[in-house]
Amino acid sequence: MTLKALLLAASATAALMFAQPASAAQLTIGFSQIGSESGWRAAETSVSKQEAAKRQVNLKIADAQQKQENQIKAIRSFIAQGVDAIFLAPVVASGWDAVLKEAKIPVVLLDRDIDPSGKDLYLTAVTSDSVHEGEVAGEWLAKTVGEKACNVVELQGTVGASVATNRKKGFDTVVAKHPNLKVVRSQTGDFTRAKGKEVMESFIKAENGGKSICAVYAHNDDMMVGAIQAMKEAGLKPGKDILTISIDAVPDIFKAMAAGEANATVELTPNMAGPALDAIVAYKDKGTTPPKWIQTESKLYTAADDPQKVYDSKKGLGY
Rank of each mutant, 00 (worst) to 15 (best):
V250S: 14
W40G: 04
L141S: 00
E147I: 00
E297V: 14
T158Q: 13
S23L: 13
Q71F: 06
A80Y: 04
E233T: 06
K101V: 03
T192M: 07
G235D: 07
R193A: 15
V83C: 10
G146M: 09
L236P: 01
G239Y: 08
I75T: 00
E261W: 00
P238G: 05
T296K: 10
K177E: 14
L141C: 08
K169V: 13
P275A: 14
A14M: 09
I86S: 02
S298M: 14
T173A: 15
K101P: 11
N70G: 05
Q65I: 03
A103V: 11
L123C: 14
A262T: 04
G95M: 02
G235K: 02
S48L: 14
I280A: 11
K205A: 15
A282S: 14
D113G: 13
S202K: 08
A256Q: 15
H132Q: 15
K255C: 11
F191K: 08
G196M: 02
P270R: 01
Q295C: 09
T296M: 15
I242P: 07
A64M: 12
A227S: 05
I114G: 01
I245L: 03
N70M: 12
F87P: 10
K232Y: 06
R41K: 13
L7E: 11
R112D: 07
K119A: 15
E297N: 15
T165R: 10
M17P: 06
I280N: 15
G134E: 03
C214S: 04
G39S: 14
I294H: 13
P116V: 01
G118R: 05
G209A: 00
Y319N: 00
K60V: 15
L277M: 15
V216F: 06
S212G: 04
S32C: 12
L7M: 07
A93L: 10
V92H: 07
N271W: 13
K182A: 12
Q20Y: 03
S186T: 07
Y319L: 00
A215L: 02
I34G: 12
R76E: 13
G189L: 00
A227R: 00
V199E: 01
P238R: 07
D312V: 11
A12D: 01
P238T: 03
D278Q: 04
N70D: 04
S162T: 12
S128M: 06
A5V: 13
E261K: 09
A9Y: 12
T188D: 02
K54R: 12
T269A: 09
A194D: 10
G138N: 08
R193D: 01
S48K: 04
F87G: 08
Q66N: 12
S94K: 13
V91H: 08
S202N: 02
M200T: 10
A258F: 09
K315S: 10
G318T: 02
S212P: 04
R55L: 04
G318K: 09
E261D: 10
P307E: 11
K169H: 06
D190L: 05
I72R: 12
S162M: 02
V266S: 06
R112G: 01
G318N: 01
L88P: 08
K73I: 05
T2K: 13
I213W: 06
L268K: 04
L277G: 12
A85I: 13
D241K: 00
L88I: 00
I247D: 05
